[in-house]
Design a protein around this nucleic acid. Structure first.
Lengths: 92, 92, 92, 92
DNA sequence: GCGCATTGATGGCTGC
DNA sequence: GCAGCCATCAATGCGC
């Protein structure tokens, strides 16, 4: 009875507890997913290693491919930046 | 010609390049998945925040639940030890 | 000649460039100092470790002492609240 | 008396407490230094801002000057990296 | 007040 | 096997 019809004083608390539990468990499930994907990534690296690839180098390549577009933009902006900062451009 | 009938000397190299490309692309796909899951986790925290929960505390809870009870006890004990030595606790 | 008697049009620009350079170099010097201090901090931790102290706990202590007692109390209270709601505490 | 001639049972503990306190305080002093230097850096930026410089751009410049040598090295290594990884170099 | 960027902390990997 | 290194992740501070 008390379980199915809790005291009013505790209803809100119980709801909060249930919500809280739901939130935490959702996060934990998602973190497990993330962990699983991370493990798959590791597997690919390990397999590659087994095929004679150098993991460290592979990581570098992935990293470079990730950063490239960003870097190129920075590089292009840089010249303008310096020139502008030094008052060598019209807009300065 | 060279493209459709490559020199034997380069066959192995081309296979390696293909393997390499396959590996890198698999990793990149998995990293995108991981990124997506991370975004979902962020959403849950944001939603919780919208419902009045304190995100920082939520993170702490998740972290604590990750640790084994034994670890948690050890860490707390060590902290108490140091805090006691520094007079930061009532019983000191 | 042009170097010793620059065109009026460029005088201001040159001054700005000099100022700019001065600013940037001052910042760079200060950042080196900051880096040096960070290295000293690391040394202290390493030395402590050599004397048998637990670095992780030391860091926690330093962190806790940084916070005002009030903050600390609030945070602990919130954590207890959540942990209680989740049945992670004895009294729940 | 107890203060100047502590019980043997507590000597080691007290020494540890003193050592511990010394360590923590050294760290705290160094962290204050670091904080002070950081504040000086901020002052330079603020002063520059007062002189009409764009702080955001200044930060970018400092950043670029910091990363450049490193990036150049990476850039150089990269080509070799790709070529090596793809078996297009003698050493592969 | 929010999002971004830096900084600090943790856990995993590598080399000795 | 452990210490140092690196990559990831949380947290603080800053600017918009």
């Amino acid at each position: 009875m008390a379980m199915t019809e809790p005291e009013d004083d505790f209803s809100q608390t119980q709801v909060s507890a249930a919500q809280l539990r739901a939130i935490v468990e959702r996060i934990e499930r998602l973190e497990e997913e993330k962990k699983a994907v991370a493990a798959q990534i590791k597997e690919v690296y390990d397999e590659a290693k087994g095929n004679g690839y150098d993991v460290k180098t592979l990581r570098k390549i992935v990293q470079i491919r990730k950063k490239k577009p960003e870097e190129r933009t920075e590089e292009e902006a840089m010249l303008d930046l310096y020139m502008h900062a030094l008052g060598m451009l019209p807009g300065s």
